[in-house]
Design a binder for these strands. Structure first.
Lengths: 253, 253
DNA sequence: CGTTTAATTGAAAGCAGTCAAACTATGTGG
DNA sequence: CCACATAGTTTGACTGCTTTCAATTAAACG
């Protein structure tokens, strides 16, 4: 439960999800200097090639990571949810190799890189927690690679829908029975390594088969077990200590 | 130049490549308790689902990370070169979500997780260096995702061949003019999200076009610029401070 | 409301997959 | 040193999932 009013509270919860943290760790995280911005949808938070002196924490809304390859094709390489530290690599490497862009309207906190380094130097458990988060992020990258490289369109889509459901529930922003999918079909296509036309057809098949229902930008997973089966979805790679309870999702409760 | 005889010397060099480290950092890394094993090709170093109390450092030879999806299809999600810390996630998360297997015969050092934690707690620069390496690893994951998701077979293969050339040169194990590709075409296929049949045909085309030459398990990049062009290869995502000099590679000369 | 953006549909083409067989190394034991 | 076994590479014919191209419909927006 996130009962905390501090902007960075959710970030702390995210860190504490994988590593045991103490009250003084919490105090140190919440005490990080930061400035908060509201950004419109589709705003760049970080650009490829950019050098930056601040790290961004996503407080509210969704963001995504993407890369542009030759001929302008785009691959979305990650979806970011509230509580996540978006660009730790900015603190540790030279220039960014990816773009990060808001998907919805977002609230973002900027933390000076120096402050983050001081925090990690002084609080070993926090440092470890941040590292653990980075490990989870890498695990998700690996799973996506397997998803794109070795599953067909139907399975890819099913897998992604399951992942997003679980992750949204894990941070407590899914309404349990259905969730928001704040993406166009073109974005979904760029995420799954497909074309938007094929994404459209794939979604229709999943709906026709009674696995999901769609309504605007919302998705309801009608038959969780079937969808997870189709997508070969096993959530262990998300490293959520206690498996999140994933009950069948429905529009109509 | 790696003029160091200590087994962990190469690991230190790898860490120092992205973060400035001091002599006492070096001493601390080299002082890590460890045991060394020789492993045959195709030996598992880590298995999915496994919990482990040690971290492995690859000292010599090649290894690869992979995941198995439904119906037994395999996706290779990473190639590991000497000097790399293979399974930091073992130290920070519960169970492994991937398999790590030797490609060639390898020499591996096992370091107790506790010792690694103590090192990171006491040496902030080393801790930062390890984190930076993890960031680079993640950057490679992202690039591979873009490679698999948004490039055709020809470009995918070209990109991978370029990456491996640069990375091998970066750790000083490529003979500059040509390098070892210690993989079967089936493994290449599982890495690129293709079939072995198509990998075979793709390699033949690259050779016929005069971009590469093949001989056993060795590859020679005949026309670097052309190959990098075909593969849309830009090495910035490898975050090698000073760009590695990549001269055209040839067998002869 | 008109305008723009996103979703949907149909038909045709193509890149890569599948299946099966032949060929080439490499290695082993007699 | 050769016969056989095994693993990996190569080739051909055919199939098919996904893309491409184009046009239409629906939704979102100011």
């Amino acid at each position: 439960m996130i009962t905390d009013a501090s902007p960075l509270g959710r970030m702390f919860e995210t860190l504490a999800a994988h590593t045991e943290l103490e009250p003084d760790d919490r105090a140190a995280v919440l005490a990080l200097p930061h400035s908060i911005r509201w950004l419109n949808p589709a705003t760049y938070i970080l650009r490829e090639g950019e050098r930056s002196s601040h790290c961004s924490v996503l407080l509210q809304g969704f963001a995504y990571r993407h890369k542009i390859v030759a001929e302008g094709a785009r691959q979305i390489v990650g979806i970011c949810l509230p509580g996540e530290l978006l660009d730790l690599h900015a603190a540790l490497l030279d220039r960014s190799d990816e773009n990060i862009q808001s998907l919805s309207g977002v609230r973002v906190a900027s933390i000076p890189v120096d402050a983050l380094h001081r925090l990690m130097d002084s609080h070993r458990r926090v440092s470890r927690a941040i590292m653990a988060r980075a490990m989870v992020e890498a695990a998700v990258y690996r799973e996506w690679m397997a998803n794109i490289g070795r599953r067909d369109a139907r399975a890819r889509m099913a897998h992604f829908l399951c992942e997003l459901a679980v992750r949204q529930q894990a941070v407590g922003i899914a309404q349990a029975k259905a969730y928001e999918l704040p993406m166009t079909q073109e974005q979904l296509a760029d995420l799954l390594g497909l074309t938007s036309v094929h994404v459209n057809r794939t979604l229709q098949v999943l709906e026709a088969d009674g696995l999901i229902e769609r309504q605007r930008r919302r998705v309801a997973i009608v038959d969780w077990n079937a969808l997870a089966g189709v997508g070969d979805f096993r959530p262990h790679y998300l490293h959520l200590g206690t498996p999140v309870e994933v009950e069948p999702l429905r529009y109509y409760a």
